[in-house]
């Protein structure tokens, strides 16, 4: 009679109705979404890439703008997914009670969280696409069409970051709680995973430490694809991302069940 929150989730097509709900809402608010998706990278790439790049020169054998653009593709997806998985999912789960409404239909929490995870990853993908377009216009995508292969990796990166964000949402009492995750998790990754400078410039022990961060592995794959270089250790990097995605999805489902089941 008691359900266990640790019962394995089941993936069902019903999850796409949750994705569809979020997509339809996003489409209504597409104006501000596009300003955010394109505006931010333009500012970053122009400000840092061109401004700072003039001082820095080449980095890792690449013009700084190229180096930075390929990193920002990944980091901006991470940030976009994290926002969606925390602020937006919390809004739907707690004040708006959208999850309660959906739970009165045949959908289970498994389906809701799967739909939210795919949706968050999709939003990350949108921001990555916007940056790739801006970077291409600035002539910072030497890989050409091959750079498109980065997009499935960005999507996987999104799945890997959606789960942890939803885990935070499941245990959050209010929006302020997310500051911890941003300060302690997102910002360090943003600074240390090779977005702004190669991880080889870090001290040895830190180079080892950053290997536990999913963003590091995502950038190790995404950067060569955008730059047009061969990818090393592809399966190992993807394996880490898949691992994060699967474990975090499972944890997210369990903790949302703990919160919403009674």
């Amino acid at each position: 009679m008691k359900r266990s929150i640790w019962q394995l989730p089941r993936a069902r097509m019903a999850a796409f109705s949750v994705f569809a709900r979020n997509f339809l809402v996003w489409r209504k608010l597409i104006g501000p979404a596009i300003v955010l998706n394109f505006g931010e990278p333009v500012i970053y790439l122009l400000g840092l890439g061109i401004g700072l790049g003039a001082l820095v020169g080449d980095i890792g054998g690449l013009p700084y703008l190229v180096f930075l653009a390929s990193g920002i593709v990944a980091s901006s997806a991470m940030i976009s997914v994290s926002f969606e998985g925390m602020y937006s999912v919390y809004t739907r789960m707690v004040p708006q009670k959208t999850f309660d409404a959906i739970m009165a239909t045949p959908l289970d929490i498994d389906d809701i969280i799967l739909g939210e995870t795919i949706w968050a990853a999709f939003k990350g993908l949108l921001s990555a696409v916007a940056i790739l377009i801006v970077a291409a216009l600035l002539d910072a995508v030497p890989g050409g069409w091959m750079a498109l292969w980065a997009l499935p990796v960005v999507f996987l990166l999104g799945l890997a970051f959606a789960g942890p964000a939803i885990v935070m949402t499941a245990i959050a009492d209010n929006y302020d709680f997310f500051n911890y995750y941003f300060v302690l998790v997102v910002t360090p990754m943003f600074m240390l995973s090779g977005v702004f400078f190669p991880i080889e410039t870090l001290p040895d022990w830190m180079q080892t430490a950053v290997l536990v961060l999913p963003l590091t592995h995502a950038i190790e794959v995404i950067r060569p694809l955008i730059v047009g270089e061969p990818v090393e250790h592809l399966l190992a990097h993807l394996g880490v991302l898949v691992g994060f995605a699967v474990v975090a999805y499972y944890l997210a489902v369990a903790l949302v069940r703990r919160r919403l089941w009674n």
Binding site: A14, S17, R21, V25, K28, T98, A101, T105, P106
Partner: peptide, 21 residues
């Protein structure tokens, strides 16, 4: 009430139907 504030009245009904497949 836990209606969807992002949708119109009609959209609320269509969206909810979708959760029932």
């Amino acid at each position: 009430d836990n209606l969807d504030p992002d949708f119109t009245v009609r959209e609320n009904l269509f969206m909810y139907a979708r959760f029932f497949g």
